[in-house]
Amino acid sequence: MAHRIFQTPFAAVYPHYLAKAERKGHTKAEVDEVIRWLTGYDQEGLDRAVAEQTDFETFFAGAPALNPNAGLITGLICGIRVEEIDDPLMQRIRWMDKLVDEVARGKKMTSILRS
């Protein structure tokens, strides 16, 4: 059975990503940058996914190009190592969570973007 987060609209979670970053003094632009880096969406495509209430499954299925360095994203999210998640979609969602966490924690953008 598919996890219910897969059918959750990306737009339902996106404001929480923004709030998390902004509470720590970071910006929407930084959050958008890491999401675009991961998914290959341009800003227009990202804005459209939010406006159209695209669910996570469709959001990632329609991602123009998953970043080839996404596999370098490691660490814990909710007590689970992102590199050990078996389901590819769940892993992508958790990668995005991890990137937003790193923005909120003030990690350098070059480090977050694995460059």
Rank of each mutant, 00 (worst) to 15 (best):
Q53D: 13
Q53E: 14
T54H: 06
T54D: 10
T54M: 15
T54N: 08
D55A: 03
F56R: 03
F56V: 01
F56N: 00
F56D: 02
E57V: 00
E57P: 00
E57A: 11
E57T: 02
E57S: 07
F59E: 06
F59S: 06
F60A: 04
F60K: 01
A61E: 13
G62V: 00
A63P: 03
A63M: 03
A63I: 08
A63D: 03
L66M: 14
N67Q: 12
N67P: 07
N69M: 11
N69D: 14
N69F: 10
A70E: 13
G71K: 09
G71L: 06
G71A: 05
T74A: 12
T74Q: 14
T74K: 15
T74L: 04
G75Y: 02
G75R: 01
G75C: 01
L76N: 12
I77N: 07
I77E: 11
I77M: 09
C78N: 15
C78A: 15
G79Q: 06
I80Q: 14
I80P: 02
R81D: 15
E83S: 13
E83A: 08
E84S: 11
E84D: 14
E84T: 12
I85A: 07
I85E: 13
D87Q: 13
D87W: 07
P88R: 02
P88W: 05
P88L: 02
P88K: 07
P88S: 04
L89A: 10
M90Y: 11
M90A: 15
M90L: 15
Q91K: 15
Q91S: 11
R92C: 07
R92F: 08
I93S: 02
I93L: 07
I93C: 05
R94T: 12
R94N: 15
W95S: 04
W95C: 10
M96T: 10
M96R: 09
D97P: 02
D97S: 07
K98H: 10
K98V: 04
L99T: 07
V100A: 06
V100I: 13
V100N: 08
D101A: 09
D101S: 11
D101L: 10
E102P: 07
E102N: 11
E102K: 13
V103W: 02
A104W: 00
R105E: 15
R105P: 00
G106V: 01
G106T: 01
G106M: 06
K108A: 14
K108H: 12
M109I: 12
M109T: 09
M109Y: 01
S111R: 09
S111A: 12
S111Q: 12
I112G: 05
I112A: 05
I112D: 05
